[in-house]
Design a protein around this nucleic acid. Structure first.
Lengths: 290, 290
DNA sequence: TCCATGACATGCAAATTCGCATGCGGAAGA
DNA sequence: TCTTCCGCATGCGAATTTGCATGTCATGGA
């Protein structure tokens, strides 16, 4: 009655993902392998761990108990790997960065370009997403985030302060200039679902016409003339077809941070990435504020 | 840079044991396998984990870091296995008992006999040793111990109270009876290295002649006439060639306990072993006290 | 009703991992 | 000084593990 640690991990991931294929992806093996490892674990235990159903593997209580403890083991493993990584002095290998797509598109790209030129041995992997990537679980090494408090237990540097303002396409701009009584159609971001409070009294007629969950899409919608958006100034200024409109006075927007897990922060690759980034940010300040 | 959990465990055990062969024994594999897993781990990390010396593998700081974290993983594993075992309702498979040799020889054997007759599907494994076997690490499932407090975090039942007394062979017995002035040669146990304080004033001349670390050897020495021993009464009474001598009045000796880890205690096999044992102990009380 | 899809089982061949046997070098003891 | 023992490295065949291809079954939509 002895289960190998790899089999424990396999059971854990199968409990977590529910199907052989998904667990196999997470492990980087073929799903057949997951199936067989689970079978082997069941053999070692002498009791079944999953119900085989048409839509996946359903864990028994016993399997969930295994998963719980394997999760503790996994945590220790992540902890270990982070520490090893923090001691890594090599400027080679993989470095994984995550940042919001729009920051990459309009601010980060030149930094990435210079970085890979300066360190050709480092393979840079980019996760362009607004989703919160888990640095403790080593889904990425460094994160660039737009946030008021960029991470409870993370170490980081504040790169930039930002202001937001209202932007729209040229049609809207001229319409607003011509007639303050016109109805202002807002395209708002899910995270801030109300018409911005600081909207000036200049335009008495305002309403929320669309609510989006994605800033890329909002930008496109605004360019197409669907309405007025509130967005960080760097984004409005950098987007062809948008111009600032005086519906909303510039106001503070969450800062831009670069963060990493404290264990990982000292690693050579992270230091090599962060330091020039901070310098670059300094020279870009004016693009981000009113 | 990803190390399999089994390889982490292997590195951990190599750090702990120092040589390939010992680590391999602990893992239940050939030492060649340990060598190769370590090499694979080093390859994954890109850095050496051990210095190969003439007398074994010497871990680097990095290897010790791995060992520390793998030890946390191991703890989670033991925790898991104990819990699974506690839920085990089967009366089949292996049950491991540890007890002092002399308790097995003179008290436990009939219990073991009845147990295996009643449960032929259970394979009983006995660790006959005075050394403290680690129940949290699952070195044994059940321990029978002679102790004042049989285990901080263990669950158990007190089986028997004991008295100790002084014993010697027939020669000594008659010599002591004939001449109270004779020199009493003590054979003492390392754990209690002084002449027992409660020795009666009947014999004014007493000295420590031998100090032993093992009660089996002491028993033999006493039978051979090397001196007088203080031992639990059950042992003196059960040893052919020894008789109680009045150098020392019977006095309390640490109790006999049966203990298991609380997680394991509820398991069917443990219950099946402990309950009859408690009953048997009740009927043996008189053999253990004055 | 039929088809497409998703999830799993299984046979087979390739790849990997493992254990055994042998050889090497250094240290302790005769 | 010689021998033995201990610990390790390495080559080779065996055993195990893995991935791929194929087949089955259940579900849901056209």
């Amino acid at each position: 009655m002895d289960i190998s640690w790899d089999d424990l991990k396999t059971v854990c991931l199968l409990v977590r993902h529910g199907t052989l294929a998904d667990a196999a992806d997470a492990l980087g093996v073929n799903y057949t392998t997951v199936s067989r490892r689970v079978r082997r674990a069941e053999g070692a235990l002498g009791e079944p761990l999953f119900e085989r159903l048409a839509d996946g593997y359903r864990p028994t209580a016993r399997a969930r108990l295994i998963a719980e403890h394997a999760a503790r083991m996994e945590e220790a493993e992540h902890d270990l790997m982070r520490r090893l990584q923090g001691q890594d002095t090599r400027l080679s290998g993989v470095l994984t960065i995550t940042a919001p797509q729009l920051l990459i598109a309009h601010f980060l790209s030149p930094v990435l370009d210079r970085f890979t030129r300066a360190h050709p041995e480092i393979e840079l992997r980019i996760l362009a997403t607004n989703a919160l990537v888990d640095l403790a679980r080593r889904e990425a090494d460094v994160a660039i985030r737009i946030s008021r408090n960029p991470g409870d237990s993370l170490k980081g540097r504040r790169l930039l302060a930002q202001d937001s303002a209202s932007f729209a396409n040229a049609d809207w701009a001229s319409r607003l200039a011509a007639d303050p009584e016109t109805m202002v159609d807002w395209i708002v971001y899910d995270a801030y679902p109300d018409v911005p409070k600081a909207a000036t009294d200049l335009f008495p007629n305002q309403r929320v016409r669309f609510r989006f969950d994605d800033m890329v899409a909002m930008t496109g919608a605004a360019v197409s003339g669907l309405g007025v958006v509130r967005m960080p100034m760097f984004l409005g200024r950098a987007t062809p077809g948008l111009q600032q409109v005086p519906v909303l006075d510039p106001q503070p927007y969450p800062d831009v941070w670069v963060v990493a897990h404290p264990d990982v922060w000292p690693s050579a690759k992270v230091r090599a990435f962060v330091e020039p980034l901070v310098e670059t940010a300094k020279s870009c300040r004016s693009e981000f504020v009113a």
